[in-house]
Design a binder for these strands. Structure first.
Lengths: 224, 224
DNA sequence: CAAGTAATTATACACACGATTAATTTATCC
DNA sequence: GGATAAATTAATCGTGTGTATAATTACTTG
């Protein structure tokens, strides 16, 4: 849409002359990726222009094409070098949880909300580019950790149910959905509730609430 | 992004000559709004061009400006005449629920999933244009039903908690978030799980699962 | 039946976008 | 120290976008 403001947050730096920089200048690549990530999070990948990233990074758009070749390749670099490391630490955190179903759930809940605490940009990017249909990162993410982590969780829930350690009215696959719906979704929608309730429902409160709800539901008979 | 295909799903209709149509032709306005809604759902509001809507509707883009004046006004019309009626029926459904907290929760869960069943486009549009930061419908929706429905729910949960009818470890406001995270969110993410689990987790299964989880959590001691 | 209004297409404008190429400056190598 | 490669900006191209205006046809009213 032509009605979106290009909000240039950077102060007008004195425009640089062309030519290779001197040796003391640092490697621009991570700086460019960080600028791209910030823009992607703020405006979405489709809504971000190379000109906007370049302005935020203090370079010209042509430099982005010099480093990455195309906008698509820049997106891939951001995915590989920023998003994947974040989700891989979550996978490691969950994979090292014990056999007990309560431990597994607790590990997932705290793992997700720890990820959110250390990478505050994650929920918004995940919603826009993975959850949204046609999101620019859905296929990439699903093809990388998609088939692995969720099915491992669903399998563990199904096994616990077979052993009589899990409420038989639950669907093991929907348990995976519920875990995300009680952790990543609240984190992603936090701005809405902050505006609606005029209060900041923190990450720790989310974890406690989710664990209480997963523990015994609305029931009052098992309070700690 | 310029790499998106404009996927013209309509068959090439014989191009019409200019001029006012004859009397037997029906009112185009609802047809235009439906075409716009379909495009907004498929590609997002920012990602939809007036040319795309016009092509799907079998008219020229100038006609859209004749009927609505601008893309922004068209968005408002779609919101007012398609989205609002849907959420208003949900509000009515929930408002007529009894005092019992279980009845309230059941009414909300079935209300949301009934809304999803009758308006399958709702979850995707809600994610993209309300949940996403900068979404084109967030402010509109929050200013219309925002302050009313969620705070009424949170107040009812807080009151039930005061009467000892609700697990004291839960946060009444996060209960509202959890309800949406267990209903609208699973519906919105259904395409992901369909692809991941190679199975269609239907709306009824979602309702049963959510009610079971809300009832007693993972616990096995209270099975029906 | 003439004048005016309503509904539609055709054309065009100014702008933003992604990408390409040329120019320019610095570093590196023989 | 001259040639070549690397890293940067400047300028440009083709395309898609929202919107405005003009042209065209049909209905309505006197």
């Amino acid at each position: 849409m032509s009605t979106e403001k290009p909000r240039s947050s950077k102060r007008r730096a004195p425009p640089r002359a062309p030519g290779r920089p001197t040796l003391d200048s640092p490697d621009l690549r991570p700086h460019l990726i960080d600028a791209a990530l910030a823009c992607f999070v703020r405006d979405g990948i489709a809504g971000t222009s190379l000109r906007g990233i370049a302005a935020d990074a203090g370079v010209t758009p042509a430099l982005l094409n010099y480093y990455f070749g195309s906008k698509l390749a820049l997106r891939d670099a951001v995915f590989e070098e920023r998003l994947m490391p974040a989700v891989l630490t979550l996978r490691g955190h969950v994979a090292s949880a014990g056999d007990d179903i309560q431990a597994l759930v607790g590990s997932f809940v705290r793992g997700v909300l720890g990820l959110v605490a250390s990478h505050p940009w994650f929920p918004a990017l995940w919603v826009r580019e993975v959850l949204c249909e046609g999101g620019a990162l859905r296929e990439l993410l699903l093809s990388r950790i998609g088939p692995e982590l969720p099915q491992m969780l669903a399998a563990r829930f199904a096994e616990a149910q077979r052993r009589g350690q899990l409420n038989a009215n639950l669907d093991p696959r929907l348990m995976v959905v519920s875990l995300i719906g009680l952790t990543l979704f609240p984190a992603a929608s936090a701005p809405i509730w902050r505006q609606l309730f005029q209060a900041d429902l923190g990450v720790d409160a989310m974890a406690n609430h989710a664990l209480a709800l997963l523990g015994h539901g609305l029931d009052t008979t098992h309070e700690s």
